[in-house]
């Protein structure tokens, strides 16, 4: 009969002790005690965890290196692909700029019809100056059609196949173009040379050509349309013993970096050979 009250008292005391401990813990009074007890355990656990981690790394390392190497190769491949795309895009931008300039050029000359073509090759021997373009008779090109860029005259088509054409550049030794100078409006003959230099021949001795004058096609002879810019006078030479004077010309077109050209397709050169005077035997 006495056991029941004693047990009840024990339970009450235990409950009070537990509640007291909880209250002390919530009040933060047990922190030094818990630190004293837990610190060695945490230290030991940290030491063990580092060793286990090291061991795990050591075991897994080869696999990680292989994965990294594989990933590195993938990334390098991706970088190479992106770099190639950048180069292609840069080329496309450059071409677009040229084409845009050519379109603007074509717009301001509505009387002419143009076909644009890319330069795909050059003459294989250095004594003559020709270029090959990627358009031919299938695109409406014919021999003799003038070829220009935004800057000015390039030359004319000398031979045509179905898919390509050969342009005789105005720097070629056999090229002869009737031109006039501005502002003096003197007529002259522009000739190329085997070295690719361009000069004005057959200038009237009374002509007042000066350095800096512009040279444009005159349209005489019917080979080229009039008023296409050709170049600028860089020097004038007069020889006392000769009735003519000569001038060296800097072409406006950069023939070394010729990429895209325009062919004037609605201009047909006139053949004036039958009209040229011939000597009739008595």
């Amino acid at each position: 009969m006495n056991a029941t009250p004693a047990r009840s008292l024990q339970t009450i005391v235990l409950t009070l002790v537990i509640l007291g401990l909880i209250a002390l813990a919530l009040g933060g009074y047990l922190t030094p005690v818990s630190r004293f007890v837990l610190n060695p355990i945490i230290t030991a656990q940290s030491w063990l965890a580092r060793r286990v981690q090291t061991l795990q790394n050591y075991i897994n390392q080869p696999q990680d290196v292989a994965i990294l190497q594989e990933r590195n190769a993938e990334l390098e491949q991706e970088v190479a692909l992106l770099q190639r795309q950048i180069i292609e895009l840069q080329q496309q931008i450059a071409e677009t700029r040229i084409l845009s300039a050519l379109v603007d050029f074509a717009r301001v000359q509505p009387e002419n019809r143009f076909v644009s073509a890319s330069v795909i090759g050059r003459e294989n021997y250095p004594f003559v100056q020709y270029a090959i373009i990627d358009k031919g008779s299938d695109n409406g090109l014919r021999s003799g059609m003038p070829v220009v860029t935004v800057q000015g005259l390039v030359g004319r088509i000398s031979a045509v196949t179905a898919g390509a054409a050969r342009i005789q550049l105005l720097t070629d030794a056999e090229s002869k173009i009737n031109v006039r100078t501005e502002p003096s409006r003197d007529q002259a003959m522009l000739v190329g040379s085997v070295t690719g230099e361009v000069s004005l021949d057959v200038i009237d001795p009374d002509a007042k050509i000066e350095v800096g004058n512009l040279v444009l096609t005159s349209g005489l002879g019917g080979d080229y349309p009039a008023n296409i810019l050709v170049g600028q006078v860089t020097g004038v030479r007069r020889i006392e013993t000769e009735p003519l004077q000569y001038a060296s010309i800097q072409p406006v077109v950069d023939f070394k970096n010729l990429e895209i050209v325009l062919v004037i397709t609605n201009f047909r050169p006139e053949d004036i050979t039958p009209l040229e005077p011939t000597v009739i035997a008595p």
Partner: peptide, 17 residues
């Protein structure tokens, strides 16, 4: 080229080409 009546500065062609 000479046969095609193209004037050729021979020394210049030799030196530059």
């Amino acid at each position: 080229l000479r046969l095609q009546n193209v004037s050729i500065p021979l020394v210049e062609a030799l030196n530059t080409i």
